[in-house]
Simulated assay, not measured.
Amino acid sequence: MNHILVYGDSLSWGLIPTTRERLSFEGRWPGVLEIGLNSAEHHVRVVEDCLNGRRTVWDDPFKPGRNGAQGLAQRIESLTPLSLVVVMLGINDFQTMHQNDAWMSSQGLAVIINTIRQAPIEPGMQIPPILIVVPPLPTTPKGAIAPKFIGCEHKSQGLVEAYKEVTAVHNCHFFDAGSVVSASEFDGVHLDADQHLILGWELVGVVSSLLKYYQRIER
């Protein structure tokens, strides 16, 4: 069985915009990904580690544990062997309390990549390949979350290009989620239910190709 770790934030956790509710497993994109890959006979389990408010490397002054680099190495170690790690982070780097731009967020992403690769896995086990998924860029934040994301639509400009450059330097795989989905019109940040389905099925094709590629290499 192939084990795939999805490491993300509320966009992957499945937060329903304007609520504190969560989409069902089969309705959020990591679940769609698992179902789609298994229907293609890949025999996959998708492990979700998606925490609302998670940043790349910054702390949340109001909630503990939102620094995505902390504890990640142990998470990789505990789940090894992994066939793939899918990382979709970045939007929370632009919350109101942070004065980050796209370049700074991309440097946080580089730390995440290096942390995964330096995790103390068992001797002889393979360092998992990494797929970076750039979240769709936020629009003007609305509703109850608006005060947390003031200016995020401006601070995040250039994120796709900055993340693409980092993934190229670090030899990771890359997918721009904004090429197929967009942030919710209801809150400007999260994904609506239909967007989860679209993203999940788009990633089925991407991940299926990666699994087949690495299976050929291992033979």
Rank of each mutant, 00 (worst) to 15 (best):
P128T: 10
V166R: 00
Q157P: 14
P136F: 00
V204I: 07
A144N: 12
L159K: 05
Q118T: 10
T140A: 12
P135A: 07
P136L: 04
A144F: 09
G108K: 00
A168R: 15
F174Y: 14
Q157C: 02
I198C: 10
K155P: 03
E185Y: 09
S106Y: 00
L137A: 14
L137D: 02
R117Y: 11
I145K: 01
G124F: 12
K148R: 15
F174D: 13
L109R: 02
G108P: 03
G200L: 04
I112D: 07
A183M: 09
E185L: 07
G178Y: 05
E153A: 14
G151F: 06
Q157E: 08
A119L: 12
A177E: 09
V169S: 15
P129E: 15
E165V: 00
S105R: 02
D194N: 13
I127M: 12
K164T: 07
G200K: 14
T167L: 03
L131K: 03
L137G: 10
P147K: 05
A168Q: 12
G178C: 13
N114F: 01
C152V: 04
M104G: 01
E153W: 13
P147W: 09
G200A: 05
D192N: 15
G178E: 06
S184N: 04
P135I: 05
V181E: 11
L191K: 12
A193V: 10
L109G: 02
P136T: 01
P135H: 05
A193R: 07
W103H: 07
L159G: 09
F175E: 08
A183V: 09
P141N: 04
Q126V: 15
H196F: 12
G151I: 02
S105P: 15
K155M: 10
A146S: 06
Q118P: 14
A168W: 08
E165G: 00
G188N: 11
I127F: 05
G151M: 05
V189N: 14
F174C: 06
P128H: 06
E122V: 07
E122T: 13
A119M: 02
P120G: 05
S156Q: 14
I150P: 06
V204S: 11
A183H: 11
C172N: 02
G108H: 00
A144D: 08
V169M: 11
V181R: 13
P147L: 14
Q118H: 13
L137V: 02
V111I: 06
I112H: 00
I150Y: 07
P147S: 11
E202Y: 03
P141V: 01
N171F: 01
A162W: 07
L109W: 00
V111L: 01
